[in-house]
Amino acid sequence: MRAADEDAFGDFVRARYAGLLRYAYLLSADRGLAEDLVQDALARTYGAWGRVGAPEAYARTTLVRLALRGRRRRWRAETPTDRPPELPAATDDLDLAASVRVALAGLPVEQRAVLVLRYWEDRSEREIAEALDCSPGTVKSRAARGLAALRAAGLLDGVLEGEPHDRGA
């Protein structure tokens, strides 16, 4: 890569790293794994720099694929826990945030990915199906299961009644 391109890539990393890290955290429900995913995805983006017109979209798509692949490889080096080493002060806001994180961590990665792509990225079911290489019907069922899990955790009581409607299908 030429020096100018490498500078541009560095600027891209500095500008997008935090957003990608949050995205990866939602996909993985693990801060350390999220950092690994982002760095891996950005290293792959480096290799594709100049060939892709939308590097952030490329990096995000790569993140999703890496997160799903990580599930298939069954990472066993660390044991996940819902008990952080330093418990935050018990306020309602922090309790809610912790509850959401625990609920997300309890979902299979496929369901978590659908929820993140559907509600955080605001992608249509068709777009999600293409990104995850599955059918729109599978996207619907995963979204329904994921939402049901959030409801069961008391996070969506009475808020959502139906399935997410599809913008693109």
């Binding site: 990393v13 935090a18 890290l21």
Partner: peptide
């Protein structure tokens, strides 16, 4: 509401100290 819940979940993900590991 789901979007807000997800936003809440990532609130603690602060920018890395010293910037990203470029």
């Amino acid at each position: 509401e789901v979007r807000e819940l997800l936003d809440r979940a990532v609130e603690e993900i602060a920018d890395p100290v010293g910037g990203p590991p470029v």
